[in-house]
Design a protein around this nucleic acid. Structure first.
Lengths: 252, 252
DNA sequence: CGGAGAATTGATATGTCTCAACACTTGTGG
DNA sequence: CCACAAGTGTTGAGACATATCAATTCTCCG
């Protein structure tokens, strides 16, 4: 039911990291605005320095949390490598997956209007994320160099993502939900330049089920069913989509 | 199945309306930044003029659309009076309600990172909305007077709302979904200074069902069930919550 | 190799959908 | 003002999909 590897969740301090200070920790690395713009696929303009290493990176090992529910807001995070899942834990202890994030995705957007994160983001595989200190931009009232606008643009993109996820999870039948989930994954991979027809899922059937509001057994059966229909080929977490058209047209 | 009153959907032109031009239409009215800040319950700072009438209002009669799916983005809208619903229409023609919005809520947030609205927002009752021309702020590269930041803050709040809606619609049992929906409505009313325990729903059972991914019959049965349990009292769209605690604790 | 979690598959239980009938509400026009 | 129509809401019976419980195999990792 629970993930034992989560027990080792580490916290971090949120010292200002907008610019490298005199004492740069040996294990830290920094990203440039240029890299951030590229990862976000942002097409707007930034007048700030593009090639200075000003955005701190952070590694998260599989199973570890980036931030916890209720934790003080410490900025957005941009996924550089790896795969994360974001969950809400209800009072009764039940976990609910609300998003899977990969390269170029934003984490923590729901904390930007609050002072706390509303959910927990944790790594499915070893990850590297870039901290985007929107909280510092916000509180320091910095000059308008286009960076803040880019960060808010990224947040508004998150609204679209959540909306799309909502639509996927609301399809009538479980097999259709699973089909649309696979399409979402496929498109996400394609957008990053990877194969749209062949990929390995980083999450368990239970996670997929939680995301789609169905049980893990139903996810498994749906995948087997789509497999038998020759629309996809499933081997554990390896997915091969034989016909994206059939998958998109699939309505049960 | 469909709403006949929607047929009369009117379109409007999106001429720049940031400042009143020489030809102010007789039927138009304008809101001040002060009013917008108050409606949004925004606590940040704006250095712009607070009491100039710069934000155009627009009336929408019950059943009419504010914007349609795929329509070119023309800014955010802030609800001043009335009640709206936002729907996605799928290729097959099925409608899916993704949000109900009332006073102080933002519409069109998903269009801010695109050039088009992704969904349709239409009035459940006669409404008045205020246009927030974030598109013009964005394209004109305006000075940093705090207004743009406020608009993006409003968008980030939308991420939280969508997330909350997601959690509500993902509860295991239909009665729990309906219970949580009522709690959401109650809290929304309370936040606006209205009664948390007594209110009239502006939407049909079908709309509620679409929002919660259940059928209208199931919504009706759930309400009847909660009524019989003495937790609430239902008479058509009039809701009286006898015990908010029991409603929150209700798990089937 | 052994153990724990992950995944598949089956049998049964249960909740929701579907189809249907009926009562209530609202708005319109004679 | 009433009759009527169309939409809204409630309730019931049966069909169907998914959840639940259970057994087995697979996979990964120490």
């Amino acid at each position: 039911m629970t993930y034992p590897s989560l027990l080792g969740t580490e916290r971090m301090s949120y010292a200002p990291t907008l610019l490298p200070t005199r004492h740069v920790p040996l294990d830290s690395e920094w990203s440039t605005l240029s890299e951030v713009v590229q990862l976000l696929q942002y097409e707007g303009h930034c007048s700030a320095e593009m090639h200075e290493p000003v955005f701190r990176r952070r590694r998260i090992r599989a199973g570890q949390s980036l931030f916890l529910m209720g934790q003080e807001f410490g900025g957005l995070y941009l996924v550089r490598h790896g795969c994360m899942k974001t969950v809400i834990t209800h009072a009764e202890g039940t976990e609910h997956v609300i998003a899977f994030s990969m390269q170029g995705d934003i984490l923590g957007a729901e904390g930007a209007c609050q002072h706390h994160y509303w959910c927990e983001s944790l790594a499915l595989k070893d990850c590297e994320v870039i901290r985007l200190p929107i909280d510092e931009y916000f509180s320091h009232g910095r000059a308008s160099d286009g960076v803040e606008r880019m960060l808010y643009w990224a947040i508004s993109r998150e609204v679209c993502r959540r909306q799309a996820a909502y639509a996927i999870a609301h399809a009538a039948k479980s097999e259709v939900r699973v089909a649309r989930f696979l399409i979402e994954q496929s498109e996400h991979h394609a957008a990053l330049g990877y194969s749209a027809s062949q990929f390995t899922l980083p999450m368990t059937r239970r996670d997929i089920g939680s995301y789609l509001s169905i049980t893990l057994e139903t996810v498994s059966r749906a995948l087997s069913s789509l497999n038998q229909l020759q629309i996809i080929e499933v081997a554990n977490r390896d997915i091969l989509i034989h016909s994206l058209e059939e998958l998109q047209a699939y309505e049960g």
